[in-house]
Amino acid sequence: MIQSLTEIFQRKHQQSASGAGIDWDDRRNKYLAAVGDLYHQVEALLAEAVAQQTVAIQQRAKELSENHIGTYKVDDLILLVGDEQVRFSPVGRNIAGASGRVDVLGERGVPEVLIVQPDGRWSFVRSRQPTLVVVPFDESSLAEVLKRVMRE
């Protein structure tokens, strides 16, 4: 039985050899850097509102666990707007078609999905079906998303 299990795992390991040689730590570090870059962009876009004290920004540590990468620490970015909060919450590096994902969660509805494109830019995935709609992250798209996730 033990021999049989060993053979099974060896065969599966050989089948997945395409993943060998991937530097998972490097992927994690690049993702964390991209998240940091996103947060800087958010802070820059909201700098005026923060100065006017209509928005406050906090960061709160959490842990993510992913296959191959393991468990690591990352911060949520939280916008405090009146009696509401909007949370930018990293979801992970191992994402289909992207190099990482951050969800934007408010008190309404479904989270908005931000992904890191292969060129390093962040974009919102507005819809997948029936038509793929991906919108670059900027002041305009952020405003639209905040309207969708916050209360009326």
Binding site: G19, I22, E66, G92, I95, A96, G97, I115, V125, L132
Partner: peptide
Amino acid sequence: AVMRAIQNGTPVAARFLGLTQAGI
């Protein structure tokens, strides 16, 4: 194939874009 694409960083069909492994 989708799981391999995540690992190898290759494109996926639109319906999978942005999904985590748990989502897939």
